[in-house]
């Protein structure tokens, strides 16, 4: 087994008295699609917040490519190759869909404090935006305001923005929530395609998606990772069945 690309070591997170993440240990292998499942309120989103710099862990280390990123700012984590999407849609509502993606793509091309070039002339950037638009099937909505998209279209845009920076490690927090069956299938295919050659950590409630997409699955219950393994191992794990899968597995 190669060195983990993302590694959580004895991570704790408490908000005041509430211990939300308790001694979480997780190794994500380069190139794998790794799903995190667990009941509502288990701390899955919090785990993502810790990995992406939204919160600093109370204790423990989070290694990305071997360097500790615990407590780094979101922008610094992103620059080290980790991008994420949000469970609650987090886009730029008052500008066009195209602009949303362009803002996301520009960073990769180091266009931040640039005031001497016109965005209309950024051919590479605009071409990449067009390509992303096609992939997330929003080409015909390119010039609508993002706020005017339907909920599931906004979810697609959220994924598109996450991909835009061409990250090594992608964290997707319930990307398919609120999507129709057809949209879910398409998005699962898209995620499979775009995570080729990258590493994916995904939280998803649709067990069909999880078990077909993930190489490995970790189960988070009350802030603790109670099991990690291949889909078969997780299906067969008694502790998981008892703690979480319960009737669903039966």
């Amino acid at each position: 087994m190669s060195d983990p690309i993302l590694s959580l070591q004895n991570v704790h997170k408490s908000f005041g008295e509430a211990h939300i993440i308790r001694d979480a240990n997780l190794d994500v292998i380069p190139g794998e699609r790794h799903a995190v499942i667990g009941p509502n309120g288990a701390g899955k989103s919090t785990l993502f917040h810790l990995c992406s710099g939204q919160f600093a862990p109370s204790e423990g280390k989070i290694l990305l490519n071997g360097t500790n990123i615990a407590g780094l700012k979101p922008a610094e984590v992103n620059r080290r190759g980790l991008a994420r999407s949000f469970q609650i849609t987090n886009i730029f509502p008052g500008v066009s869909v195209f602009e949303n993606l362009r803002l996301a793509v520009m960073r990769k091309h180091n266009l931040q404090f640039v005031f001497w070039r016109s965005v209309a002339r950024l051919r590479r950037v605009n071409a990449e935006v067009d390509e992303l638009l096609t992939r997330i099937r929003l080409s015909d909505r390119a010039y609508s305001l993002a706020s005017q998209l339907s909920y599931s279209e906004q979810r697609s845009l959220e994924i598109g923005m996450t991909l835009a920076s061409d990250p090594q490690v992608i964290l997707l927090d319930e990307p398919m929530a609120g999507m129709s069956h057809e949209e879910t299938n398409y998005t699962a295919g898209l995620i499979r395609e775009i995570t080729e050659g990258r590493t994916l950590l995904i939280v998803e409630h649709d067990m069909g998606v999880v078990f077909s997409l993930a190489h490995r699955i970790s189960v988070l219950v009350y802030g603790e990772i109670v099991a990690t393994g291949t889909p078969e191992e997780i299906r067969g794990n008694a502790r998981v069945k008892e703690a979480y899968l319960g009737e669903e597995a039966a």
Partner: peptide
């Protein structure tokens, strides 16, 4: 307003939080 920095001004107005997760230094912007 048509340059990358000018466009990022809109991003700052619309959602500075998201800009940070896209790797931008919102304070410097």
């Amino acid at each position: 307003s048509k340059t990358p920095l000018g466009r990022l001004a809109l991003g700052l107005r619309e959602n500075a939080h998201r800009l940070r997760f896209l790797g931008y230094n919102t304070h410097a912007l």
